[in-house]
Nucleic acid binder design. Structure first.
Lengths: 143, 143
DNA sequence: CTCGCTATCAGGAATGATTATTAGTTCGAT
DNA sequence: ATCGAACTAATAATCATTCCTGATAGCGAG
């Protein structure tokens, strides 16, 4: 249940000066419909269903705009394209290095972490992402 | 002051079954000599000084072996090649999205985080990396 | 020491994700 | 309706990283 409401999105577009085009809305809808952590390619395929004329480059550009205005979030694991999601609550995802599945790790306190970071650096922090890798139970059994 | 002693390294190579070749040792030395967070290319250039015949691919392979046996650590920021370091204490690096500089954020409590993670997932955790981006003071002044 | 075995290496080509380019299109403001 | 800025589609280009091939090196058995 991502907390990304249309009203907030419109507001963020307005403030940023970017325009909320149909393609960008479609990318957003694709992310809404995909509870996992789709790659740009996944989003592209999803968007293509409703609008077969979109180009992959447009999806990349839309994702980058959406991330810049703070509506989507990206994470990069090794050996995998970047993955995107809408959930802007700080949360923790783990990726299986064998099968590539991504799932969420619950109950990990990240709340204080970001403010801790801001207090200990002179940088203006724009993005944080905690990347965790492992072997999922299913793949462990197979090994 | 990386805590990476030759003795530990040899032990880890022995246990893993990989062989400690001169190229791999050179990669390790390059990381020792570079206190920052060099990319594979940086390491390559550094290694080349003592052995001009090494190939970039070899550096990548050496880094991946060294990471697998737990001697080096990699992090991936957006818009930047992967960066490697020797410091295996969990620590926090921030990268300036404008000039690319990487520096460390001190005094952030990451100690409990990893055990917290392990307790809340069925995955066998093999790697964690906290990736933070921002604008460094120098670049902020210029903007 | 020498043969043969296996892991590794150098060099370069190939891959795959992402970005840049360019010409055309849409959209909002006038 | 007109104009200009922002956006898009399509494709080419880029860059990090991996893969492939034949050559080497190191090691154990004899």
């Amino acid at each position: 249940m991502p907390m990304v409401l249309d009203k907030d999105v419109r507001e963020k577009f307005r403030r940023s000066g970017f325009t909320l085009t149909s393609q960008r809305r479609a990318v957003l809808d694709a992310l809404r419909g995909n509870k996992g952590h789709p790659s740009a390619e996944d989003v592209y395929l999803s968007v293509k269903k409703s609008n077969p004329r979109v180009a992959l480059g447009t999806v990349y550009q839309a994702l980058s705009v959406l991330e810049e205005i703070g509506v989507v979030h990206s994470k990069r694991w090794a050996d995998s394209p970047a993955r995107y999601d809408l959930n802007l609550e700080p949360h923790l995802d783990i990726r299986c290095r064998s099968c590539g599945a991504v799932s969420e790790v619950p109950n990990v306190g990240l709340v204080d972490l970001e403010s801790d970071i801001r207090q200990n650096t002179l940088y203006e922090v724009t993005r944080t992402a905690l990347v965790v890798e492992g072997i999922c139970p299913a793949c462990r059994r197979e090994a």
